[in-house]
Nucleic acid binder design. Structure first.
Lengths: 135, 135
DNA sequence: TGACTATATTATCATAAAGGAATCTAAATG
DNA sequence: CATTTAGATTCCTTTATGATAATATAGTCA
């Protein structure tokens, strides 16, 4: 039975031997990379975040994000193909909603990582400033 | 007390510490997207995976991955800038090691997501095959 | 049916990113 | 100090990606 992955992201001292990524075939690695690629575009992240409060149709997304229509449509297509959002046609409109909540899990882990890094940098800068009396 | 005091000092400027992705400024969202971008390249993932068993110098990474030298050097630079690996010069060589283990956490979440999606697709294909007696 | 609306798709352009060859830099060694 | 070696950087070419405008499609309603 495969070990259940942690559902909440804690700063875990996690056993690396549990990790299977290092054993993936090149094709599987490419799939993982491709998933990350979908998340690597600020406007796409913005779109998903706009859906956090609930399903929206394309027009609403265009309004809240300020992006162009064709642009939004294509981003949504990519997100849907990656399984991050789901499309629900309703009449002439198309409603989209988040279909994979691990998205937020991923983002929070990244945020935490970035936060730690920025804090470290901030400390170093303060050290440097403190060591520079001429300023 | 808000969930988990990750930092001891107060954040002077607004940072990513208590991250609700949906509330991030465009700049912070861009940082998150940029982090994902570093992970969106199969060869970079391959390099990080190669480091899972321990630190390696560039030559070793070139050998195990089969990538070109300039290429590996550039990928390592990106990974280091993202804080995913750390560089340790030793003599004329440069050893790299994983410096952020949440990398594996991220990959596992993605793997799980992909696995679920592939299972669903597999079921659908089986249904279709079963409903196609002419084959 | 024909006009209208919401969304998808296509074509095109500009920019970014990856790979490879060549070059540069710095540490070790004779 | 010249040479060798590991690694970083630069330059160039190719491919991928994102934005936009134009066009196509598919529901809806008069």
């Amino acid at each position: 039975m495969p070990r259940k992955a942690a559902t909440k992201n804690k700063p875990t001292t996690r056993n690396l031997d549990d990790c299977k990524v290092a054993q993936l075939s090149p094709e599987s690695l490419a799939m993982v990379a491709n998933f990350f690629k979908v998340l690597s575009e600020p406007n796409r992240l913005q779109i998903v975040c706009a859906l956090k409060s609930g399903p929206c149709n394309v027009t609403e997304i265009i309004e809240t994000t300020g992006l162009g229509q064709a642009n939004v449509s294509k981003h949504l297509k990519m997100l849907a193909q990656a399984g991050i959002v789901a499309r629900q046609p309703r009449g002439v409109a198309a409603y989209y909603e988040i279909s994979n909540h691990s998205f937020f899990q991923l983002c929070e882990i990244v945020c935490e990582t970035l936060s730690i890094q920025l804090n470290q940098q901030s400390k170093q800068i303060k050290e440097l400033v403190a060591a520079t009396p001429n300023l």
